[in-house]
Design a protein around this nucleic acid. Structure first.
Lengths: 318, 318
DNA sequence: CTCAGGACATACTAAATTTGTATGGATTTC
DNA sequence: GAAATCCATACAAATTTAGTATGTCCTGAG
């Protein structure tokens, strides 16, 4: 039994005639004769009574007709379901990201997702980079944003934007420590300052350690604090200086509670990477969110809400 | 979308590999590549992720797989339903017949139908030939048994059996009428006897009138009685002679309450015809009963329960 | 790091199926 | 009884499907 045969059969019965059906279907009448004969042979039963005024169904024909209609309907339903799925991504998408990114990104991303893909349930999970990466490997999240590039056989990352890190310090100079006198400071000037930095499990700390090593200087005395809030609080209270992206301190700076210095070229930069699985199925809901994340981040940069530089990821259509 | 494609697709997904599926399906692997590609093009979506260790479904592929399984199942179901319908006729079949036939046939036919086609509900309606024929034309019954052949554009009849009619008379000779002295009597001997016969609406009466006309003699004085019981009662009481099939009088004869004479060749015969619609759909339940009626009548003749001669109806497979 | 092996894709050819054309037989209708 | 209608059949043409040979990509072993 063939779908074509079923379609033809339905039309023949509905038209009550081979010839009429042939017209409707734009095929020659003998083709229909043949198909019906083949079906009758394969089923071992007559399906149609051939009368002088056309044809009527036998009981077996009735059974076939009913089933044929259901089958054709099912076929159409399947196609529609697939097309609709393409047009309207749906399902849960889990996105993992560090809290610092979440602070800026989550709200506009959730809003955009709600508007553009109402059938997608976007779950955002925050944690430190290390945990997020682990989630990604365990498939606990579908996508992740990280400050570090990843590239192995499971995961690939693409940079979305790069931001400069700024030196920040207390509004009043620390006793015994001179704040830099220029708006731009060099690495070794930084190395001479007491710093408030996150511990090693934070990507930021590694980034700075690496930059220090590359520039061949060692960091000064370090006070550890593992949240930006604490870091900023300590700096504001005059416990030391720190290095953070501008977003994290914009409010305090404009309120005059913190002073900032640019870091001399090439500066210290941190990039945001979108991480996705490389070879495993990524649903088109996840794909949609992937694009939306890129788009939203770009938008944040464009509107100045994220002080960074766009890095258009080179997309493959996967 | 094609059933073959769906079957192939299911196998590919189940095997997780084009090559394995090709083996299982006994087709070349490129054929599968092509079919999947065609489906993907026609749906505008990737259905499978091609990995180095085989393939996995995309989300669209999952949707297709689910639907494909349902469709294949539906197809198989349709075929099974039709085959089962052939094997097990079901539904109501209405059979119309004259009471005389019903007396002998109904019980064995109903029993046989119950055993052989338990899903068929066989309804038997009794009436005189004329009414039964009318029912047949009005499609109120699906099949009929009659003593007269029918053949027009709606109905055809086939003879099933022929029975001889016997002359019967009272055990004690009627005053003034000599019972035939030989075991076999001729037409003109019959014509000289006073007769008890049914009225013209009975097929039997027409049959006798016709036979009389053909043999160029006229029937003697006729007493009319419209049931076999009455006729037999009247004959037994010495009111006259009659002509009936042997079945109708077997009991009385063996009890010595009636005498019988054979009628000289070619005798007077009555045939039983099965009547069925000629061009309209006859369900296979009706077809089954049609065969069963023939079979049962033949059986009745074979076992001597109906004194007649089989006439194998030449069947067309309609 | 190279190489063998497995897996799917592509190109082209061969086979099978499907369709179309022409025609015939049967039956109804005017 | 002749024309018209309808389905069946036969054979040829066209399209679809399958097969063969080969290519490319990736993995995993040595």
């Amino acid at each position: 039994m063939d779908l074509r045969q079923l379609r033809y059969f339905i039309s023949i019965v509905e038209q009550g005639s081979f010839s009429k059906a042939a017209q409707e279907l734009n095929v020659a009448q003998p083709a229909l004769s043949l198909h019906v004969r083949n079906m009758e042979e394969s089923l071992g039963t007559k399906l149609l009574f051939r009368g002088p005024h056309g044809v009527t169904t036998t009981e077996a024909g009735q059974i076939l007709l009913r089933n044929a209609r259901m089958i054709i309907e099912q076929i159409n339903h399947a196609q529609e379901e697939i097309l609709e799925h393409e047009a309207e991504p749906a399902g849960e998408v889990h996105l993992g990201l560090p809290g610092t990114i979440s602070q800026i990104l989550s709200v506009p991303l959730l809003l955009a997702a709600r508007d553009r893909y109402p059938k997608i349930k976007l779950r955002i999970a925050e944690a430190m980079s290390g945990f997020v990466l682990e989630w990604m490997r365990d498939m606990r999240v579908d996508l992740a944003l990280l400050y570090i590039p990843v590239s192995d056989r499971q995961l690939v990352s693409h940079p979305v934007l790069t931001e400069n890190l700024w030196l920040l310090g207390p509004p009043k100079p620390m006793p015994g420590v001179a704040s830099p006198s220029t708006r731009t400071v060099s690495f070794d000037a930084i190395a001479r300052l007491p710093l408030v930095l996150p511990s090693h499990s934070h990507g930021l700390r590694s980034l700075l350690e690496d930059a220090a090593a590359r520039n061949e200087f060692t960091l000064g005395p370090i006070l550890e604090a593992d949240s930006y809030g604490n870091i900023k609080g300590l700096v504001e209270a005059g416990a030391g200086y720190s290095i953070l992206p501008f977003n994290a301190i914009a409010r305090e700076v404009s309120a005059g509670r913190l002073l900032t210095w640019k870091i001399k070229e090439p500066g210290i930069t941190r990039s945001v990477y979108v991480v996705k699985p490389v070879d495993r199925p990524m649903g088109n809901a996840a794909r949609a969110i992937y694009s939306l994340v890129n788009e939203t981040l770009n938008m944040l940069v464009d509107t100045g809400k994220w002080h960074g530089v766009k890095k258009a990821p080179k997309e493959k259509s996967n």
